[in-house]
Design a protein around this nucleic acid. Structure first.
Lengths: 106, 106
DNA sequence: CGAATACCTGTAGCGTTGCTACCTATGAAG
DNA sequence: CTTCATAGGTAGCAACGCTACAGGTATTCG
């Protein structure tokens, strides 16, 4: 996967991964890898700042927990985050349609 | 269409629009509008610099012409540009699949 | 026991790129 | 003579994903 192709859609993916259950950063990266069939390997330097951003915007809420001597910050969706996810899904669909139409599905 | 959603895919769209025939900048904007069913209205401040960038990278070639007293710079695909378009189409397909998979098509 | 690997979180700084805002100019229509 | 469609362009900004770096614990393997 080439760099930057996710531009503007990473937030949606992060929210989507947290929809079913709360997860910590590392687990989120793993989940993205799994859901994408291995093609997605988003670096920590991308994910952690993005999560903080989403929390700052009120879409996520986080709490620390200690699991087996390791510190984890677990994120979960807020109500606002759930709504945002729905909105972003819609936007993605429109974007995909539009770009697809212009590129010509062939 | 929200700002920046095209990030990283505009180049592909510009190349795609020039695939069938050479066009000048203004006509390219019109073509994008038409192909997208009216949803795309890319500002000139986005398109003109992008075209120059693509030319600098060797994907496009341009020439001036005077039509009805108006100066036009007409762009056409180079061989390299055609190959690039094919590559970008493939990348788009993969990106769309991946994001779709993560978001869960529902 | 020591080393490597997985697990886990983060920051600093960079480069790309689409956007807004602005400027110039001609031809046609009203 | 003003307004609109046509046509091209620049300057500067903000957002964001990336690389590179930094620090730490637990497990596994030789």
């Amino acid at each position: 996967m080439k760099a930057d192709t996710l531009r503007g859609h990473l937030d949606a993916m992060l929210l989507a991964v947290l929809e079913s259950e709360p997860r910590h950063g590392y687990a989120i990266i793993e989940a993205l890898k799994e859901r994408s069939g291995g093609t997605l390997d988003v670096p920590t330097g991308t994910v952690y700042p993005a999560l903080r951003r989403l929390e700052r915007n009120g879409y996520l809420r986080s709490s620390w927990s200690n699991v087996g001597g390791r510190e984890r910050r677990t994120y979960s969706l807020t109500g606002s985050g759930t709504r945002e996810l729905a909105a972003q899904r819609g936007q993605w669909r429109q974007t995909a349609d539009t770009i697809g139409a212009v590129l010509g599905t062939g």
